[in-house]
Amino acid sequence: MNRVVAVARMQLAHPMITYGLPAAIVSFSFAINWTIWRLGDVAAHTPGDGSTGGLASLYVTVLVFFVQTVAQVFSFAMGLSISRREFYAGTAVTAVLQSAVYGVALTVLDAVENATNGWGVQLHFWAPAPLDVRNPLLQFLVLAMPMLACAFIGVGIGVVFKRWGTLGLYALTIVSLATVGLAAVLATWQDAWDDLGNWLLDQTATSLAIALPTGLTLVLAALGFLAVRRAVP
């Protein structure tokens, strides 16, 4: 067990990189959005919809962090005789921990946002309108679960790189593209876009933002584990 914790500590060795960097990036994104809202008086032009997707920068940064950390810490950890299972468990602990910390931070920021009328400019940055559920616990899950999914997408990419190298990454890109492309072609051919749209509208924001990422996380975590079992540092 403490070897699992040791792996998590290796990955979180530098708080400046694990928390500082993503926080800096998303703060920057927030500053840009706030300035635009303030100068452009966006709230007056589009009343009722002050949402922005600037928060995505945080999720992307976390994804990239996990690609990197798997690619780098894996070799080092195995050099210290950590088993692949322990490494993977430690990485999962790191992902859960990070998602929880960010989830709490974002929930708090969202509460402040709602209390200050969108930072005085009706900006909905920390939880864009469809994801603003006004219930702290639910809000936490809505913000944290997609982050966990992003973390495992990152872990998955990192594992593919360790197991199959650059060629594996190219293959992954091609396969992902082909899958999405084929699905789009299929939906168009079957005239299914409207049905799909209706189905999405029928779902509540919470089920989309919690159930979908949770399912994705579980699938990716399982696939990643299978792949890492034969990866060579």
């Binding site: 530098h14 780098q72 080092f76």
Partner: peptide, 8 residues
């Protein structure tokens, strides 16, 4: 050939 994480 042991690799160490970049920031270590």
């Amino acid at each position: 050939s042991q690799r160490y994480p970049d920031q270590f």
